[in-house]
Design a protein around this nucleic acid. Structure first.
Lengths: 215, 215
DNA sequence: GTCTATACTTGGATAGAC
DNA sequence: GTCTATCCAAGTATAGAC
């Protein structure tokens, strides 16, 4: 359809720069997952995608900008899943179930690996920490919305405000993923989700919210 | 410019090598805190400590071994504080209070910064993930002991075994420190600790343990 | 837009004098 | 054990042809 706006395409170029950009982003995600931040050099990324190393600087300016573009892409993809999973949850039990599903998907997709690498790399680059932090903020927002919807009207919300609980949930989630990523053992995390699934109905019974009351 | 210090020490002097080793470990911790993993090169570390870059390879073999030595050192130091703080806690409320104090100390001391950097770097080096994981295990162990002592005999322990709770606590703790480290904002974490301090007495009242009963 | 070639920098690691 | 000097590999980034 519409061409990339002001960017005219010379007759000789096939596919244009847009495809190349996307390929680089994909190759970056792939390389971060496989080789980690320290191994994700411009050369390594280009090799992964079968692309030319010098084009990174033409399209992105620097590899740090490429990293951020990669984080944007994988975050956007995951956020779709998050929203779909979380919006469907009507009770605390369903929400816990969604979280467990999201956790597994995050590990499979390697999104958390990309994020973990960049978190570790954050202090290496000036301003990177803030930029990563900004990309985590939507998670907290989403978590708060979901929590508010499910337990917001119960007395529990007064004791533990959704805002604070959301922060804790995101921190717990991030910590679990990182630890799982370190030792490669998913069983402890799975056990925790099973435990949460067991406790959720009890908590819902103790603090009935509007969704339970309304049927 | 030649630097002063241990230079004038006679050959074969006892303790000369040990002191240098310790200085390198200290300089590594310092550099990791200040410049991050990517910035902690052999040259940068040596510069921090006013030492000779080539000695790293004489004393440690490689800089990865130096990183692990640094992690060992800072972990050992922090574990002393952990044990002291946690062993003194007699109730859930005191335990939460200890955790908050430990959290602040971890941030101040920069231990968590070192750990975060190495976690991020883990996948860059083969086998590093496992070695870091091994150094986190004592935390989980300590947390489990403390939890068991404080709430082990209450009915809550049946619903949420100390073993699993300990894993969750460590993951939550790690996630909180990493997030705080990213955006530099401690207020959300502080709010969580305050909230926990508020809830702890309630939980203790709901599930009285042996220490409360014995009062 | 994409390529080849390369300038320039930094990093890990080693050799050999003292 | 510590130093100076250096090798070599890898990194980011740019120049210029097509």
């Amino acid at each position: 359809m519409a061409k990339p706006g002001t960017k005219g395409r010379p007759p000789g170029a096939k596919g244009g720069g847009r495809a190349t950009r996307a390929q680089f982003v994909e190759a970056t995600i792939e390389t971060l997952k496989r080789e980690g931040f320290a191994g994700a050099s411009a050369r390594a990324i280009a090799r992964t995608g079968g692309l030319n190393q010098s084009l990174i600087f033409y399209h992105f300016g620097s590899i740090n900008d490429l990293f951020l573009a990669a984080l944007d892409e994988t975050s956007a993809r995951r956020m779709e899943s998050y929203r779909a999973a979380v919006d469907g949850a009507r009770s605390l039990a369903e929400l816990v179930d969604s979280a467990a599903r999201i956790y597994r998907e995050d590990l499979e997709s390697g999104h958390i690996k990309v994020l973990a690498e960049l978190i570790g790399a954050a202090s290496a680059v000036a301003g990177m920490g803030r930029q990563i932090s900004e990309r985590i903020a939507p998670w907290t927002h989403l978590a708060r919305e979901a929590i508010q919807r499910v337990v917001g009207a119960s007395p529990a919300a007064a004791l533990l405000p959704p805002e604070e609980l959301a922060h804790a949930v995101v921190a717990l989630y991030l910590g679990m993923e990182l630890l799982t990523n370190l030792d490669g053992d998913r069983s402890t995390a799975e056990a925790l989700f099973n435990r949460a699934a067991l406790l959720a109905p009890m908590l819902s019974a103790l603090f009935p919210g509007p969704t339970q009351a309304g049927g």
